[in-house]
Design a protein around this nucleic acid. Structure first.
Lengths: 272, 272
DNA sequence: CCGCGTCATTGATGATCGTCAATCGGTCGC
DNA sequence: GCGACCGATTGACGATCATCAATGACGCGG
């Protein structure tokens, strides 16, 4: 919290990639957005980045405010949401490890960002981050590609909400989670049984994400279980037996191979 | 199974621009994304940009393909859509004058882009555009801000789809259109009567955009008329009498002043 | 160990929507 | 002008969901 970044780049030489100091935000996960940047940039970023732990339901950015920070998630799940006039909430996105939050070169953020679970994040003062950005097309490129990812995610989400029956929405949500987070620890493969998925959010969060109610979510899960497509281990843990059928129900058509191909393409460009 | 907007609408949207065959794509509209770029860049862009006219329902980019072009819309409306496994289509975005399409530094585009009306676009060969981009942080900045806009749009769309009753979705859609396109010719203010809005798309397009059916859209419009909130002039032309109530129904909370403030903020940064 | 609160689940019922079918209105080709 | 056609509209009915209410499961503090 009070770690002085004033000494700048020199001091953080030992904080850099691969360093095991807990004061650095880098060098831990494989999926961080800045993984492909040059060492010099990582050093500069490390000098202004601060790790932070959020308690569940803690508010990181309030809707409509002009956030003074940008950053990315290292662990846990954050939800991006909007509270409507009538008090209803709508969740427009979930942030997991590697996802960025906040906005450069822009004013008020129309959504609030809250911790859906206990979280660890890395945040940068917005102005200092923007200063770095001014001098680094490389960093700007990463941001641009990151936006593309977010856009894909948002539109895939649109496809989920477009489903008429909530059982299809829920089916799609499971596929969505698995596709986006397969690389994280929440999922494990067990060839005999299927794929284990830990749901990181409550029924209420899911309902608000899919535009339904908790009761509908619950019924949908149990209907999926009746169809032998999943097994409910606990309300927060499932085993997926038939991914293809879930995909078919939800209408999500992109296969994983396509997803991977696109991700690889982006990585190549980033490295270029 | 031919689909497309009624020919009656074609007439109403047609002949607006006249038949001038300028070689350049620039210098006409106030709302083009590249308006703030330096003259040198505009010249360079003008050298590789080519205007093009699309007939209604013409396919500009097929889903899953790697488009060879990027560009922006000069006139008309394009829809970004995805055809699901079962043949159902989902519209994830509408592109109007000033909106960009295509993607730099990325592979296959997961959606198809089709003309919802007769359109005029300006397209650049992707590779040449990327070459320009490599040497121009200024241009990259514009793209980044453009992505932010698209993200906002997609998430606002999410809010629409989250509404349970389709009358609320339709109400929100009208507000959405007016906010995004108020600067275009499709809307006109008439203080005594309300605001005139020309809907540029068919009932089917709207249904697929909002995740419902044409019958529901139709019923919703007439229910809104019964409540004296709108007047249906033709199936493609409405007069809005009570915008505030429509906003309230849809849950869209951001006021226009906020929207304007954010747009101004972006413009300032772009100009910087 | 008990009591309390929170969340998930289940049941029942009215509201809304999707679906199928019929009708209307306008356009276009002849 | 006539007729075929396409899209919008309207009606009727079954499917699905939101809502309200009650119950069950679980964790936490006393």
């Amino acid at each position: 919290m009070m770690r002085g970044a004033a000494s700048g780049m020199d001091k953080s030489l030992d904080d850099r990639v691969g360093g095991d100091r807990k004061v650095t935000c880098f060098g831990r996960s494989e999926s961080l957005p800045f993984q492909t940047l040059s060492p010099e940039l990582l050093v500069a970023l490390g000098a202004i980045g601060r790790p932070k732990t959020l308690a569940c339901d803690e508010v990181l950015v309030a809707a409509g405010e002009q956030p003074g920070i940008v950053g990315f998630v290292m662990d846990g799940v954050l939800r991006m949401e909007k509270t409507l006039i009538d008090g209803q909430r709508q969740i427009v996105g979930l942030l997991v490890a590697g996802d960025m939050f906040g906005r450069v070169f822009d004013g008020a953020f129309p959504f609030s960002v809250e911790a859906a679970t206990e979280c660890e994040i890395c945040s940068f003062p917005k102005t200092r981050f923007e200063t770095l950005l001014e001098g680094s097309p490389e960093l700007e490129r990463v941001l641009l590609l990151n936006q593309l990812n977010e856009l894909d995610s948002a539109r895939e989400w649109l496809g989920l909400l477009a489903n008429h029956r909530t059982i299809d929405k829920v089916a799609g949500f499971l596929v969505f989670l698995h596709r986006r987070w397969a690389h994280l620890a929440e999922t494990r493969k067990q060839p005999e049984l299927g794929t284990l998925i830990d749901l990181p959010i409550s029924r209420l969060d899911m309902a608000e994400a899919l535009g339904t109610r908790t009761e509908g979510i619950s019924r949908a899960f149990h209907a999926l279980q009746d169809r032998k497509l999943i097994t409910i281990v606990t309300p927060y843990r499932f085993v997926i037996h038939d991914f293809d059928e879930l995909e078919r129900m939800s209408g999500l058509s992109e296969s994983e191979s396509e997803i991977d191909a696109r991700a690889a393409m982006r990585a190549a460009h980033t490295l270029r």
